[in-house]
Design a protein around this nucleic acid. Structure first.
Lengths: 238, 238
DNA sequence: AAGTGGTCTAGACCACGCG
DNA sequence: GCGTGGTCTAGACCACTTG
């Protein structure tokens, strides 16, 4: 990465994660960091702003930048993160089973979700996610075929995001998400090891590309006892 | 507010919300906005960055800033927002019942949540939230007494956040949140109209002040069918 | 008084999209 | 080639904290 401020952000974030800077430590002052990295103050401030946004530090006028305690942040479902990336970050044994992979003419519901008409083909992908030998999550993905002409079992087994970003070079920009809890359906019971639970946590995501086109709708259905969502939020006035 | 960039942000956000700028419109270019508001480019860019962050716009190099469709964002539980603020934004008929308000020596669990020892007094506040004549949410708040010496039923009935920020002038900076789904307890059944549901959605929040001191732990317990969480997330590389 | 972060400015150069 | 946003710089002044 040739960006100075991103490089500095990553460097500082790494130093916080590895404990070089510890919770409640003060980061070096902005003028000190300017000299250390040999950049202008604005560049340093850009880096620090991202650290603030991500919950790494808290700034205080007249005092400095305090390192926050991030040890409660181990399950970052917030943000736009794929299942494979998640697994990597957690180091747990996850596995994925591709149940359905087909290119279809969408039904009414899917048309509605993706805001298209039924002549536009979409990929329909159902995958189950296994943790400790139990099927915990059912992911139902619908992806506009015009953006992704080919998909294989192997790609779905691996990471669709990786393929889309690294191979197709599509740029995912943002997502809208909604979390609710609903009665489990026959489909849920078919694909998941629901045990005694008769409800599932449903995470609906609409994913958009950089040019603001909606290209994917995902419904992620979780067994309630294994669902956790962790969030860091700053108070915004006005 | 004397901040230029916040003023401009609010002005533009207002124009998007009221439909002066519509979805898929291009915002005026940065140089145009510089002239319109008679400020430097950096100030404009600060405003646009917040709009981007909050999901109002999407920028594209060489093209401009596109207005996004925000109509799916009607329930902003994300961010640090209090119940009263929420009610205002939704225009629905909510009501709050204060069930418990006392200053206690905390038990082991609360000590653990707030990272204190049992000699520190805390306010214990239980409130139920009613929507359409049903008790849907049970809020269990624990607030360090050293920050808030006095609390009344009237304040709790209204908005604790309002009192803390506007009257005590404490500055709430950020919060960590966790969402899970759990079996309902006897307490839940006592305070809520749970109908046939035997599970509740539990939102645990740790709220921090600007000086990074943890001052409040809240457990918000929701009847599952009425729970919605909406989030906007940008994809961050690296 | 000295040091910290917060805001604002003016100017430079680059990368990208489009005609 | 022109206009757009993206990055970076250097300098100014202010507000706040601490000694």
């Amino acid at each position: 990465m040739n960006n100075k401020y991103l490089t500095i952000y990553n460097d500082l974030a790494e130093k916080i994660k590895t404990g070089y800077y510890k919770a409640n430590d003060l980061l070096p002052s902005e003028s000190k960091l300017m000299k250390d990295y040999n950049v202008s103050r604005d560049t340093i401030r850009k880096s620090l702003n991202i650290l603030t946004q991500e919950g790494y530090i808290q700034k205080a006028q007249g005092k400095g930048s305090f390192v926050l305690d991030i040890n409660r942040f181990t399950f970052p479902v917030s943000g736009v993160v794929s299942f494979k990336e998640l697994g990597k970050q957690l180091g747990k044994t996850f596995s994925t089973d591709v149940k359905i992979l087909q290119c279809i003419s969408p039904d009414k519901n899917v048309c509605n979700y993706l805001n298209i008409n039924k002549n536009q083909k979409v990929w329909k992908i159902f995958r189950t996610r296994k943790i400790d030998e139990e099927n915990i999550i059912l992911d139902k993905d619908y992806i506009l075929q015009k953006f992704v002409s080919d998909l294989t079992f192997h790609i779905c087994q691996n990471s669709i995001y990786e393929y889309i970003e690294d191979t197709l070079h599509l740029k995912i920009a943002y997502a809208k998400k909604q979390i609710t809890v609903e009665k489990s359906t026959e489909e849920d019971k078919k694909y998941l090891d629901l045990k005694e639970y008769d409800m599932v946590v449903v995470v609906r995501s609409y994913t958009y590309l950089e040019d603001t086109s909606l290209f994917q709708y995902t419904e992620s259905r979780h067994r309630p006892d294994k669902f956790v969502f962790v969030d860091f939020a700053r108070r915004n006035k006005l």
